[in-house]
Amino acid sequence: MDIVRTGKGAMPSFAKTLSATQISAVAAYVTTRLAVMNLAGGNLAEGGVLYRLNCAPCHRPAIRGGALAFSRKNAPALTHVNAATIVGAVRSGPGEMPAFPVSVLGDQDLASIVKYVIFMRKPPDPGGLPLDYYGPVAEGLVAVGVALALALVAVWIEEKGRG
């Protein structure tokens, strides 16, 4: 409700254009919209599929955000956004982000996506060193680097042993 009055980022303030009752009506609508969405009913696996299809190209599969074209603005990381922000962004499409109306992405699907995003804030991490969740290619690159360093150490030890 406050955000409608004050505005935030690209969103203008509506304090002058809307009356106090209108602002509370907007807030009430948004709240009902959120309440209608049963966020607890989402399915994590389905959310993962939908997220990778619709969101991962920009926000990366591990929700850590990614670069856009010709811009210093990136698709933001979703590690600190709450469910209401995700719902609002998906439905309205802020900035360069396309909107996903309910006709093509149902409320249940969106609830699943929210569930996946919240799960991915801290996914299971058996390796202990996630490397910003860039995935197996980055992990392999680090492993090759470590192996090369060890090989250089071995060569150095042998050279030293000879001398």
């Binding site: 619709n54 499409g93 396309p98 909107a99 006709s103 093509v104």
Partner: peptide
Amino acid sequence: VTPDGKPVSAAALAIGSAIT
């Protein structure tokens, strides 16, 4: 059709929407 097999009407997408 959408990934869940539903047909897409011409007005299903809002202007500025993009889906697979």
